[in-house]
């Protein structure tokens, strides 16, 4: 049994995996331990390293995404798949969706993708300050992702908000954009952003008003916006109140007196429309 430290990123794992492959170390003989007491990712010299066959791009894509997952088992799983591709003669393994290893990896890939998508959706920026000279605004957001997705999730914000400065602060790493470069720094355990943002009041008004009390579907909401995100979404504080008041609001509508139909007012434009419709009917 060999202890190996995969490090924290795809590239550190990749380096360690290459070394193992060259020395033909089978997956069952490897113990992957991040920051482990015994192992290290130091490349060992071997007399005759075997040549690693070219690895399909589809695997690299999959492995890169899976590497952002928070499950420590991702490293041995990826190595097992890699071993089967390079030493087991299963070059097309990644396309076998029913293989148990691939199923497991695809599930992790899916959670990572979903979390990136939710980051794009649920990060909420607050205005910190505006540069008096240039007028350039600086925003910051606090977000708590389940997986290590700050790096892959940040390109989107760079493209979308390239003309404002922003920081996304999370316990799993932070991203900062200053208009020129995207910088990543280690995570911060607690939300440091204290400033309230005046626009939040308008956002809450919007959320309250766009809700239709006659079509309550709480489960549908929660499937797409799970509760674990609520604490960082300002609008979520309204949810209970909106659900609670929906039934009385609908009952109120249903008992409302029916409004009579009024005759068409004198209006040249409405007359014109009526004439057009009449001609259409006659055609």
């Amino acid at each position: 049994m060999e202890c190996v430290d995969p490090g924290k990123t795809f590239s550190s794992w990749r380096k360690a995996a290459r070394d193992l492959l060259e020395r033909r170390v089978a997956p069952q003989n490897v113990l992957w331990e991040t920051g482990g007491l015994f192992g290290s990712a130091v490349v060992r010299e071997t007399a005759q390293p075997c040549v690693i066959p070219k690895v399909p791009a589809a695997f690299l894509d999959l492995a890169q995404t899976v590497s952002y997952h928070n499950d420590p088992d991702r490293w041995p799983l990826l190595y097992k798949i890699l071993w089967r591709i390079t030493h087991g003669g299963e070059r097309h393994l990644t396309s076998i969706a029913i293989d148990p290893d691939i199923t497991a990896a695809r599930l992790m890939e899916k959670s990572v993708r979903r979390e990136i998508h939710k980051m794009h959706a649920f990060v909420r920026f607050r205005l910190m300050d505006t540069d008096a000279e240039s007028g350039r605004e600086r925003y910051a957001a606090w977000f708590e992702p389940d997986h290590y997705i700050v790096e892959p999730g940040s390109t989107f914000f760079k493209k979308r908000f390239s003309n404002m400065d922003w920081s996304i602060i999370t316990p799993k790493g932070c991203a900062h954009w200053n208009g020129k470069s995207l910088i990543f720094t280690p995570g911060i355990a607690k939300n440091p952003i204290a400033n309230p943002d005046q626009i939040e009041a308008a956002w809450l008004t919007y959320y309250r008003s766009i809700f239709n009390p006659a079509r309550l579907k709480v489960k549908a909401m929660q499937t797409e916006m799970p509760k674990r995100y609520w604490k960082n979404l300002p609008e979520a504080e309204l949810i209970d109140e909106l659900i609670g008041s929906s039934r009385p609001r609908v009952d109120q509508m249903l008992t409302e007196e029916l409004r009579p139909v009024k005759p068409r007012p004198k209006n040249a434009y409405l007359d014109k429309l009526a004439n057009m419709s009449k001609e259409e009917r006659e055609e």
Partner: peptide, 13 residues
Amino acid sequence: GICHSYAPDGRCI
């Protein structure tokens, strides 16, 4: 597209 929020009517915002 991205749904930035959901109202209790289950609709995407």
